[in-house]
């Protein structure tokens, strides 16, 4: 068991003032069988307009809001304490839709042939997932900037490179070929200064987190923020605004042991 203190902040700087800004944030971690979150606080700036809470179908906590007044920057900061007990992501049934491909995970020729070459041999779900993760880890090279948030698993496989989001999407695609229910997770991990993505696999009883970017089960140094079938289901921040403005985003996170 570990007790961690976390702090996570995203800042958006617009190139000019924007108005009519609506946003949904999935930045507030919630308790499950693995992590117990106490006193999470979310601060949003500037303090304009209304902010409220909601929930989505995947069980995530949403912070929703609207800022009609002009503003040139936007930031949200979450902090709190997490108690991590083991490497499992909580027990209970998994919704059936987690077993099916989405537009981002849909396998093409490249993924299907990779799967044919790397069929796992173990009998149980988790070991099969670990085998697939290991083959993937061997095959891929971690490179920033070659992929984006809309890159599909198949496209990343074709380039055999990408970042944690791409590793996660490919692993989801491979697991779903096997009919295994699995989900995409966004969160924080001890050694990274920003957000991370990994996969949770359901073995019929419980969820277990597996990090294909590092080819290991998630340990007690990971804090989950949200999950869904793929990245598109659960972006940490989604917003729309009026104004022909670009934006620069900076993300920072810090986890310390208590």
């Amino acid at each position: 068991m570990k007790r961690l203190r976390f702090e996570y902040e995203t800042k958006l700087e617009f190139s000019q003032c924007v108005t009519g800004h609506s946003f949904t944030l999935r930045c507030t971690p919630f308790s499950d069988g693995r992590q117990t979150i106490s006193e999470p606080v979310c601060e949003i700036s500037p303090k304009l307009g209304e902010v409220w809470r909601s929930r989505d179908s995947f069980g995530n906590i949403l912070i929703c809001g609207r800022m009609d007044e002009p503003h040139k920057d936007f930031s949200f900061k979450v902090s709190g304490e997490a108690q991590i007990v083991n490497s499992c992501g909580g027990s209970g049934a998994a919704a059936a839709f987690y077993g099916f491909q989405t537009p981002l995970t849909f396998p093409g020729e490249k993924i299907l042939s990779f799967y044919e070459r790397n069929k796992p041999s173990a009998a149980d779900v988790l070991s099969r997932a670990e085998e697939l993760s290991a083959s993937l880890y061997e095959h891929m090279t971690y490179i920033r900037g070659v992929t984006g948030t809309e890159t599909t698993a198949e496209q990343a496989m074709e380039m055999h490179s990408g970042v944690c989001q791409d590793y996660a999407h490919i692993l989801l695609s491979l697991l779903r070929i096997e009919g295994i229910r699995c989900r995409y997770v966004s969160g924080l991990a001890f050694e990274f200064g920003e957000t991370h993505a990994w996969v949770e696999v359901h073995d019929g009883v419980r969820w277990t987190g597996i990090d294909p970017t590092h080819n290991r089960l998630i340990g007690d140094r990971y804090i989950k923020l949200c999950h869904g079938r793929d990245y598109a289901d659960c972006p940490i921040e989604r917003g729309i605004y009026i104004g022909n403005a670009g934006s620069i985003q900076t993300v920072s996170s810090r986890i310390t042991e208590i």
Partner: peptide
């Protein structure tokens, strides 16, 4: 579940 009309949200 693979029907385009099925919406997980």
């Amino acid at each position: 579940y693979i029907s385009k009309g099925y919406l997980a949200p």
